[in-house]
Amino acid sequence: MSASALAKPAMRGLLAKRLRFHLAVAFTLAFAAAGSFKFLVGDARKKAYADFYKKYDAMKEFETMREAGIFESVKPKKGSN
């Protein structure tokens, strides 16, 4: 085979053609990654927070910290020490 038998490469419009393909692939992969993160991580985290706050009692937690002496500006209840 001689050099003249080889076909010339198609250079005109090559960048635009490849760019369209790669942009489509990039957007597809980005949406797939975002959707999988939302369903696998975000929804599980949202459910964990909801379960925690269903049984969380802020006043009980405050009383426990007050009795432990964590707060400097709040005195423990009388009769506890």
Rank of each mutant, 00 (worst) to 15 (best):
M11N: 10
N81S: 09
S36L: 12
F62P: 03
P9D: 05
L40F: 08
T28Y: 08
A7W: 01
A7T: 08
G42M: 05
K8G: 01
T64G: 00
K78V: 10
T64E: 14
A48P: 03
A30C: 08
K75S: 13
L6Q: 12
M1P: 04
L6H: 07
L14Y: 10
Y49D: 12
A30T: 07
S73N: 14
Y56F: 15
G42S: 10
T28G: 15
N81K: 14
F39T: 07
P9T: 03
L15V: 14
R45N: 12
A58L: 06
P9F: 02
A50R: 14
H22L: 13
F37S: 07
A34S: 08
A68W: 02
K75V: 00
I70W: 12
G35Q: 02
A34T: 04
M11I: 10
S73T: 13
V25T: 12
A33L: 13
K38I: 06
Y49L: 15
K8Q: 11
E72L: 12
F21I: 06
F39G: 09
A7Q: 13
A24Q: 09
V41A: 09
G42N: 02
M1E: 04
F27M: 10
R18N: 10
A10T: 08
K46N: 09
H22M: 10
A50D: 15
Y53S: 02
A24K: 06
L19S: 09
V74G: 01
F27S: 06
P76W: 00
D57A: 02
E61Y: 08
E72R: 14
L29E: 12
G13M: 00
V25L: 13
K17H: 10
P9I: 00
D43S: 04
I70P: 00
L29K: 09
S80A: 14
H22T: 11
F27L: 13
M11W: 02
A50N: 08
L23I: 04
M11T: 13
G35N: 09
A5W: 02
S80E: 06
L19C: 05
A3E: 12
L40M: 09
F52K: 15
K75Y: 01
M65D: 13
E67P: 01
S80H: 10
L29F: 05
R18Q: 14
E72Y: 06
M65N: 12
R66M: 04
L14C: 05
